[in-house]
Design a protein around this nucleic acid. Structure first.
Lengths: 188, 188
DNA sequence: AAATGACCATTTTGGTCATTTGGTCATTTC
DNA sequence: GAAATGACCAAATGACCAAAATGGTCATTT
């Protein structure tokens, strides 16, 4: 079996199980059935290997978002599908979950980078799509960078923070209030 | 001078300078020119004393928000003034700033509580005012709990997180995009 | 009756040192 | 001879422990 591939698989498994800090290169080598040195012929160090793994997640997210925006629908429906899809992955994917926990607990610096990358990926994607929508005249002209930032923050807040202090919302309740703020506002 | 008062003053100064963890009861006593035991005749322990101080901040915030909402203006203008005012205090008040730093660095648990209280205070206030506005017919009917949560999160995000990865916005740029999302949405 | 600080149990700190870790490279393998 | 390996090393980590500091109490003082 492809050695590089089995290293990546082993690393993904270990990072997802134990996080970045608690994963040792030795361990990855063991799981991958590979000498430790071999890892360093494919990756220059542990951190690079880690980013390679994270990059997989990034691609997965972009894929989900891209699929949502590919459909023939109103802008907001596509946006909603993309953001909920991407953030649901972010919320359930074992690696992503483990990394969030590690960040809270240890502030591991490469993990911070990684999660920031994930967020930036989503943001960039949304920002581009919003720009297209503005150009097509589907939505009002707005500062797309700020607007997409706010939209993502709203989704993040409802999906990740709401339940901290409130009873859970069902999908419809969430969708409804988000649509209000994004598309119509609460003004009369 | 009133002993209780001078203890509170000393505590506020010390918490604001060094944070909760790094402030010792001995130190407070020294600054207040008071025996350590005296502190325990007024406050049952360090934590309670701390909450007393935090409560001061809470009151200050409520005052700022209440003043904003007292004016005779459209709902959104009052909301904007209240939130920017309150969050500006939160962003500049030495104690609040120090506590945020302490939370990031040490996750000190009473500090976490305290900052959560601050956030809850703002949220409750906004929620109540929004409810009034809905009843008066000034804004659309919405789930006020979720709506106020989202509005606060938007303001928090723009005021505290935006500059992490972007060039600063001036007041007008901020106000403009926030008004769009709160009152009008980006839909045509 | 109110204030105090010496006192105590518990926690935190600072420093040491054995163990572990990321990374290298001389040797082995195919 | 190119690729793989694991023994090896310097650096980082964390278990350990003595010493210091801390929150809180209470017998004594004011």
């Amino acid at each position: 079996m492809d050695r590089r591939q089995s290293i990546l698989l082993a690393a993904e498994k270990s990072f997802a199980m134990f996080g970045y800090k608690a994963t040792t290169v030795d361990q990855i080598a063991k799981i991958a059935n590979v000498g430790k040195g071999t890892i360093y012929t494919f990756f220059s160090n542990k951190e690079e290997l880690f980013y390679e793994i994270v990059n997989g997640l990034v691609k997965e997210m972009r894929h989900i978002a891209a699929e949502a925006f590919q459909e023939e629908r109103p802008f907001y429906e596509k946006l909603h599908m993309a953001l909920t899809g991407v953030l649901e992955l972010r919320r359930t994917h074992q690696l992503a979950v483990k990394l969030s926990q590690e960040l809270r607990e240890y502030n591991t610096s490469p993990v911070k980078e990684a999660l920031k990358t994930l967020e930036m990926t989503i943001l960039t994607f949304v920002s581009n799509e919003l720009e297209k929508a503005v150009e097509k005249g589907e939505v009002k002209p707005v500062r797309t960078d700020v607007a997409s930032f706010l939209m993502m923050k709203m989704y993040l807040a409802l999906i990740f923070d709401w339940e901290e202090n409130h009873d859970p919302l069902n999908e419809n309740e969430m969708a409804e209030v988000l649509e209000t703020f994004v598309m119509n506002g609460i003004g009369k």
